[in-house]
């Protein structure tokens, strides 16, 4: 999907906990973490596949996702915003907690 409507602004998402054996743009500090979608940033080729020199990298929506420092580091009062490809994200399964 590239139209940016899978995760509307405000959606509570969780990043995948994957530790892939290849290039990726999901930093380890933000893996398996809960955040909130700010808004879609626009589509781009998935860096993980493009980095392998393949011509078949899928184009995916990128989302700006806001994380509370407490959820990333267990402490802190700031926020961190990352730009994450759609396949790095799923809707937070515990969003109603």
């Amino acid at each position: 999907m590239t139209d940016g409507d899978r995760f509307p602004p405000g959606t509570r998402v969780r990043t995948f906990p994957h530790d892939p054996a290849h290039h990726t743009r999901l930093p380890r500090y933000a893996r398996g973490k809960r955040g909130v979608v700010v808004e879609p940033e626009g589509p781009a080729e998935l860096a993980d596949i493009s980095a392998q020199g393949r011509g078949d990298a899928p184009v995916e929506q990128i989302y700006a996702v806001r994380f509370a420092a407490r959820d990333l580091w267990g402490e802190g009062d700031h926020h961190v915003v990352l730009n994450l490809w759609e396949s790095y994200l799923e809707e937070d399964p515990d969003r109603d907690r």
Binding site: H22, H23, E45, A47, S50, A51, Q52, G53
Partner: peptide, 12 residues
């Protein structure tokens, strides 16, 4: 000859 993502991959 290469793209930016391949270049980043090579650095990493």
């Amino acid at each position: 000859i290469f793209n930016t993502n391949e270049f980043r991959d090579a650095i990493e």
